[in-house]
Computed example of a mutant assay.
Amino acid sequence: MSTITSEQTSSDGPPTDWLEIVRKNVANLRFGSVQITVHDGRVTQIESIEKTRFVAGRDDSPTGRK
């Protein structure tokens, strides 16, 4: 599992569109979640948590041997 965080600031241009960042984060995920943090009615943070899943075979034993 990995957590992806990035800081989006713009001192001389328009503020970064948080909805577009959410769209990109969701589009880049196969399994995981996107969390939006809000303070005083404003989006202050967006986190993407990506999970990697492994499918166990039917013949796998707990010790790894048969």
Rank of each mutant, 00 (worst) to 15 (best):
Ile49Ser: 02
Ser6Glu: 07
Ala27Asn: 10
Glu7Arg: 13
Val43Thr: 04
Gly64Cys: 11
Glu20His: 14
Arg65Asn: 04
Ile49Asn: 01
Gly57Gln: 09
Glu50Cys: 08
Val38Thr: 07
Val34Trp: 02
Asp17Val: 03
Ile49Cys: 01
Thr5Pro: 02
Ala56Cys: 08
Phe31Ala: 04
Asp40Leu: 11
Thr44Asn: 04
Val34Pro: 00
Val43Trp: 03
Asp12Phe: 07
Arg53Phe: 12
Leu29Trp: 01
Asp60Met: 15
Gln8His: 11
Thr52Ile: 15
Ser33Asn: 15
Gly13Ile: 02
Ile49Ala: 02
Ser61Ala: 11
Val43Met: 10
Thr63Cys: 04
Leu29Cys: 06
Met1Arg: 09
Glu50Asp: 12
Ile4Asn: 02
Lys66His: 05
Thr52Val: 14
Asp59Ala: 13
Glu47Asp: 13
Phe31Pro: 01
Asp60Tyr: 07
Thr3Ser: 13
Val38Asp: 07
Ser10Ile: 09
Thr52Gly: 06
Phe31Arg: 03
His39Ile: 11
Ala56Ile: 06
Ser48Cys: 07
Thr63Tyr: 01
His39Gln: 14
Ser10Trp: 00
Lys66Gln: 12
Ile21Trp: 01
Gly57Asp: 13
Asn28Cys: 05
Ser48Ala: 11
Gly57Arg: 14
Gly41Thr: 12
Gln45Thr: 14
Pro14Met: 04
